[in-house]
Design a protein around this nucleic acid. Structure first.
Lengths: 233, 233
DNA sequence: TAGTGGTCTAGACCACTAG
DNA sequence: TAGTGGTCTAGACCACTAG
């Protein structure tokens, strides 16, 4: 019963949806009706309702009203940073290689670039105190004359590297997690037997017009891999 | 230059943040200043600013103003439904077992229940047209006298099963993805060799007061596993 | 035509910040 | 004390819906 009016009304309406008094697909009372019921101005009701809309309880249709949503059952929020996975010791990170390389056909396809564009390729090995945990390789289209500062690259994470040229607020990111039988050299770096698959986390970044900005693969010792996700709010 | 005033102002402010005209940690002009600059009422400016706040561009401190946020680099949105993973044919789902079982020590710990509480245990095998893809096991605390309808259970997903007693809007969900060397019986069901690790997706559901409502493990053939996640908006 | 949500205003009062 | 964001109001006009 405490807090501002708009919050009390929002709490009350959410409770009614949770109890099934208003069910998915149904209309809840109109803004004007609610303003009357709660004895507040229409703007205050609108504020409550925009909270419900933002939190996925309702959606509004002009001329009709506010409908109760079907609950989002399968959405989770995930936090991933390749450079700070559980067990990794930042100081033990090995920068294996930084180079300007030619693109391959696959990379040109992924990054949507022409033949003549070269790539900055960064290879790193993330380690725990004693053992290798993940092998990481990143590709970023190279712009001529751009300086490459090894010290920065060693500790920078992928978003930071890409953001040197783009606002991080506008970068769209895509993550794919899967397993595969890796090439022998990767298995060797991770000290894994021939039969073992590795977990691969593929990261792809895009600018606001969906032009690819960078591509990364992290190959993880499967028995060291773990990632967590949570429902919203 | 189109759309309502509040959207135009929000777009303009976001652009200024993207361009670095306003940088993370800095204050942007106050509501009153902006109202003057854009020649609109303070309420319209507030509407623009609440958009920026919601989208993670800014946060506001009463008495001080609106600060530009550090960009969220590592957040992704993930959609996961064990019953509709890529490659799985719903009709090929095998309901291996539904039973009321005693809890084990580990399950009592996970589900925070007493000795005498029994569990509904559901074992399923998700298959492609030809092969097993994932073995799935769920535990839900059993309430005496509750009917168990096999047909419903076979096709229901975990959120739906739990939601029979709780509003899906209020259920908090937790997902953990990792690899492990599975027990022989699981490897056999998935037709995997002894050396292969499996991907495990552990799901845990909680009510609004964080009391566990259900626990599930999905053991996936690693070479059939794939999951995608995207940055917000 | 009556009702719905969407946009916008000009004004009020509040608690909080910081000189 | 002047300025900040937070809350709330009563009213206006709009496009859209549906009888």
């Amino acid at each position: 019963m405490s807090g501002p009016k708009y919050a009390i009304i929002a709490r009350d309406l959410k409770e009614k949806i949770n109890k099934g008094i208003y069910s998915p697909g149904e209309l809840i009372p109109s803004e004007n009706e609610l303003a009357g019921l709660y004895k507040v101005s229409r703007m205050t009701v609108r504020r409550s309702l925009s909270l419900l809309n933002n939190e996925g309880y309702t959606y509004s249709v002009p001329g009709k009203g506010y409908y109760v949503c079907e609950p989002q059952q399968h959405k989770y929020e995930l936090s991933y940073n390749e450079a700070s996975m559980p067990g990794i010791v930042p100081e033990a990170t090995k920068l294996l290689d930084v180079n300007i390389v030619n693109s391959t056909k696959q990379l040109r396809l992924e990054l949507q670039i022409d033949n003549e564009i070269k790539l900055i390729r960064i290879k790193r090995l993330f380690c725990s105190a004693k053992n290798p945990v993940a092998y990481d390789i990143k590709y970023i289209p190279y712009k001529r004359g751009e300086p490459i500062i090894e010290k920065e690259i060693r500790f920078a994470n992928f978003p930071e590297l890409v953001a040197q040229r783009n606002s991080l607020f506008t970068v769209n990111k895509e993550l794919r997690i899967y397993c595969e039988k890796a090439k022998p050299e990767i298995l060797e770096l991770l000290q894994l037997g021939k039969e073992m698959p590795v977990v691969v986390i593929k990261q792809k970044f895009f600018d606001s017009s969906n032009k690819p900005l960078g591509l990364g693969f992290t190959y993880i010792n499967p028995l060291r891999f773990s990632i967590q996700a949570y429902s919203f709010k």
